[in-house]
Simulated assay, not measured.
Amino acid sequence: MNDDAMDLRARNKQATRQAIGHAALQLAIEQGPNGLALVRVHDIAMAAGVSPRTYNNYFASREEAICSFQADQSRRVGLALRSRPVEESLEQAVIAAVIELYTDPEPDKAGLSMIMSTPELEGEALKAFSVAEGPLAEAIADRTGIAPGSGLFPAVTAAAVAGAIRVAGRHWLKPGTTDSFASILRSALSHVVPVTSPERSQEQR
């Protein structure tokens, strides 16, 4: 199989995964506050235009399907940081990478609210964030010249960034909030990266 065929297959698989995830989330939202308990695999498969068997090839649970967009997004944080210009400081690179990844497009409020207000879904989303911390920590280590495993800074910063994203999401969902998610996320991240960056420590010596 040539590279083009492999790329097409990968794109098709990702498109199917996204279709199933979108259908699962929309069905849960339509069912209201207790939507998770009312959504069935058969219904998700029908809405996505696939068979239940295909659904099971992609997801092990409804929670995993509903949170798949957030999971896929979180796994790209490390790659997003690596794509930033090398001349940017760690602070600039992390904030720019995270804001671009999580606000283009802006999150769906109904979907995010469903996930954050349902314990089973919030737990699944937290699991996705935890998985994302490793690649982000590696990208931070590479950018700051820290040898892998030689210090706590990359892992602690990655965990703090993931926490800031979650806190920003909760704040954005509060009734009466009029600020964009991008502005809230930027503010949340500004409390994390500048204080902990080893670059800042070196400059102050």
Rank of each mutant, 00 (worst) to 15 (best):
V50I: 06
R17F: 02
L121K: 06
S113G: 14
I95S: 12
M114L: 15
S68Q: 08
P198W: 01
V77N: 09
A60G: 13
F153S: 11
E138S: 01
S68R: 07
A160R: 04
I44E: 01
G32H: 11
R166K: 06
S190M: 02
I146T: 11
E199P: 00
F59E: 01
S130Q: 13
H42W: 13
E120W: 00
Q14F: 07
E88H: 14
S201V: 12
T196Y: 07
G78V: 04
K174N: 06
R82N: 15
L90M: 09
S117N: 11
R11N: 10
S183Y: 04
L81Y: 07
L36V: 09
A19I: 08
S180I: 06
V39N: 07
D3P: 00
G32C: 11
T177Y: 00
G163E: 03
R76D: 12
S51T: 15
N56I: 06
P105M: 10
E138W: 00
Q14W: 01
A48H: 05
A10F: 09
D4Y: 08
V86N: 09
V156M: 13
Y58Q: 05
R17C: 01
A159V: 01
E124V: 06
V98N: 05
P52A: 02
L101C: 02
G149N: 08
M46H: 15
